[in-house]
Structures are given as structure tokens and as C-alpha cells.
């Protein structure tokens, strides 16, 4: 649904150059919620703003719903008619809501329809429908200043949906909200994704956001995507930073000459019999440092951190045994060790 190839953005100001995006290849499938996570300054906002060409990429292409937007953009700094038309089919939600304070809630939702040239009566019908969808019917005549943060973001979402978009872009939509409101807004985005088949690309710096609603995720660092895939794929990727962050298990090695191993299992299976089997077969004492079970991206997943006596070299065979059981094994090497 959204594809970027070799997307590069270099900001030039007063002779200084900042490479915010460095050859980003992103692929968001139709109907999925895709999260891009990264620290502040990683280039997340630049990426999402390049998707609807609010920011002109320095190089690379952006395709949304089969249309090459970079080709529509032309060369001048101003957006031509075709690009503007394409933009009207891409909804965007902002961290600070960006509602017009001079307009009522309903009039804010009607704004994109005014731009599309929809007639007055049709506009107000549509706006009221959308406000109903986000649960704000009773606030239609209020002004944004009279709403809470969560309500403002609901208006923002209703407004973003006014042009019947196929794609919704969300830049830190919940970052200005408290945890409770964040959950309800994420739930709303999830519902809209399911009900309307909306493809959602969201940017965040909070792992919890990815954990609660994303089907796929990408990790950005210094303008590059360093990891990406569906949540299932990521969790099954040995050594995945995203997986470790999405699903952390604690526990430190109890001493030197120990091997620490993370065992990840999906679905209903349990590591428990495998661990005792391992202990019996190789006659070793296994201590469990930490364990957790959780739902990530709709998948049930468990992870256990265990400790085997002896160095890694001594444990090649037992670890091989665990791998043979179809479990995902990550060996944590002690700091400084090769």
C-alpha cells in the first residue's frame, strides 16, 4: 500500500547538511498497522512527512496505493493539483492535533470536505457520521479549546477520515496524551483499521504503542531502517533488538563461567518439559533467571532466560538440543566476550 525505495532526505540550512533519511526502503501492506519506532532525531517524522510529500525527498520514490507520488510532485516547491488530490486520499493525524481554534469541532471535520468541494448539506451529514464513529456526537458544536487531549485527537482522527482515505498517517498521535487516553486512542485506531480496512502507518518513540496495535514494525536509527518485518517475524529473528524490546525478560548471569540463553516459544507450546528434559539428558543444573508470557501484536509469546553452568563452548551440545526442539534460542554473550 505504501512503498518507499531509496528514500533520502537531506536538510540543508546555512551550509550545514543533515541527512535525516538515508535510503529508506519501507513496505507497508494493505490493511495492516505498521509502526516505525526510533529515538528522537532518528528521522521518523521526516519519513512520514515524505510519504505524503509534505517534505520533498532529496532522492528515492514514494508510492501510495499504486501511485508514484514523487512523480506527481513536479519540480517546483509547490504542490500541483494532482499531488493535492492524492494527498486528500491520505489521512494524517498529528501529535498536537492541529485543530483550527476558530472552528467548531464539526467545522473542523468539515474542512477537508470543503477543500474537496463537497456541498454544505453532504458535508455536515458526513461530519456528524464521523463524529459518531469516534464517539463525539455531543461535542459537534464545541470549540477545540473546550475539549480534553483525547477528545481533540478523536476530532483529529475524524477529520483525517473525512476524505475516505485508504491510508492513515499518524505522527506521534498519542505522545501528548496520558497512558489511559493513549490506550483508548490506540484502540480506536485499531478498530478503524479493522472496520474500514484502513492501512495505518504510525510513528512513535514508545514501544508500548507498537506492542499494542502493530502488525508490523520497523526500527529506525540515524535515518535508516535497521530492522523490519511483521511482529511474528521479528520475534522469531534471533538477536532482534526490536523483539528484545517488545518482549523483554530480565535476569543477570549469577557468575562467570555461565552461559545465559533466552528461549522464546510461540503459541501454546511450553518450554517447561523441554527444560527438564534438557536437565535430565545432559545431567546439568539449569537455573531460570526470568520468564514472561505476553501477547504481542495479537500473538501469544513466552520467553524464558535460563542459565547453564560452564562457558558457551561447554554448552554447544545442550544448546543444539534446544534448537532441535524448534525453539528460538538467543545466546547472550557476557560483556567483552567474543
Amino acid at each position: 500500500m505504501i512503498t518507499t525505495t531509496g528514500l533520502t532526505k537531506v536538510y540543508r540550512s546555512r551550509g550545514r547538511e543533515v541527512t535525516a533519511l538515508d535510503g529508506v526502503d519501507l513496505h507497508v501492506r494493505e490493511g495492516e498497522v505498521y509502526g516505525v519506532i526510533g529515538q528522537s532525531g532518528a528521522g521518523k517524522s521526516s519519513l512520514i512527512r515524505c510519504v505524503n510529500l509534505l517534505e520533498r525527498p532529496t532522492a528515492g520514490t514514494v508510492t501510495v496505493a499504486g501511485r508514484d507520488l514523487t512523480a506527481l510532485a513536479g519540480r517546483g516547491p509547490r504542490a500541483g493539483r494532482e499531488l493535492r488530490q492524492a494527498r486528500s486520499r491520505i489521512g494524517m493525524v498529528f501529535q498536537h492535533f492541529n485543530l483550527l481554534s476558530s472552528r467548531t469541532v464539526q467545522d473542523n471535520v468539515e474542512l477537508p470536505l470543503e477543500i474537496l468541494g463537497v456541498s454544505g448539506r453532504e458535508r455536515s451529514r458526513k461530519a456528524l457520521d464521523l463524529l459518531d464513529l469516534v464517539g463525539l456526537t455531543d461535542k459537534a458544536k464545541s470549540y477545540p479549546a473546550q475539549l480534553s487531549g483525547g477528545q481533540k485527537q478523536r476530532v483529529g482522527i475524524a477529520r483525517a477520515l473525512a476524505g475516505d482515505p485508504k491510508v492513515l498517517l499518524s505522527d506521534e498521535a498519542t505522545s501528548a496524551l496520558d497512558p489511559e487516553t493513549t490506550r483508548s486512542i490506540l484502540q480506536l485506531l485499531r478498530d478503524l483499521n479493522r472496520q474500514l480496512g484502513l492501512t495505518v502507518l504510525l510513528i512513535t518513540h514508545e514501544m508500548d504503542v507498537v506492542k499494542s496495535i502493530c502488525d508490523s514494525a520497523a526500527l529506525m536509527e540515524r535515518g535508516r531502517i535497521v530492522e523490519s518485518g511483521t511482529v511474528g517475524e521479528l520475534l522469531a529473528t534471533p538477536g532482534s533488538e526490536l523483539a528484545a524490546a517488545l518482549f523483554p525478560v530480565g535476569g543477570e548471569a549469577t557468575g562467570e563461567d555461565r552461559t545465559v540463553v533466552d528461549v522464546t516459544f510461540h503459541g501454546e507450546s511450553s518450554t517447561q518439559p523441554v527444560i527438564s528434559q534438557l536437565s535430565r539428558t545432559y545431567n546439568i543444573d539449569i537455573s531460570i533467571l526470568g520468564a514472561a508470557i505476553d501477547t504481542v501484536g495479537g500473538l501469544q509469546i513466552g520467553r524464558m532466560r535460563i542459565e547453564l553452568p560452564g562457558r558457551y563452548e561447554d554448552n554447544v551440545v545442550p544448546i543444539g538440543f534446544l534448537r532441535e526442539q524448534g525453539l528460538q534460542i538467543d545466546v547472550l554473550l557476557a560483556e567483552g566476550a567474543e
Partner: peptide, 18 residues
């Protein structure tokens, strides 16, 4: 009207940080 959000008043077309 009042303000629409806690956003600081920014220059036109400036990227926002979290």
C-alpha cells in the same frame, strides 16, 4: 477559540519533535 493544543507557537512549516 483559545488554543487548540499544547503546541508551542512554531514558525511556519517547522517539523515538530515529540
Amino acid at each position: 477559540g483559545g488554543r487548540s493544543g499544547p503546541a508551542p507557537k512554531l514558525r511556519l512549516l517547522k517539523t515538530k519533535e515529540p
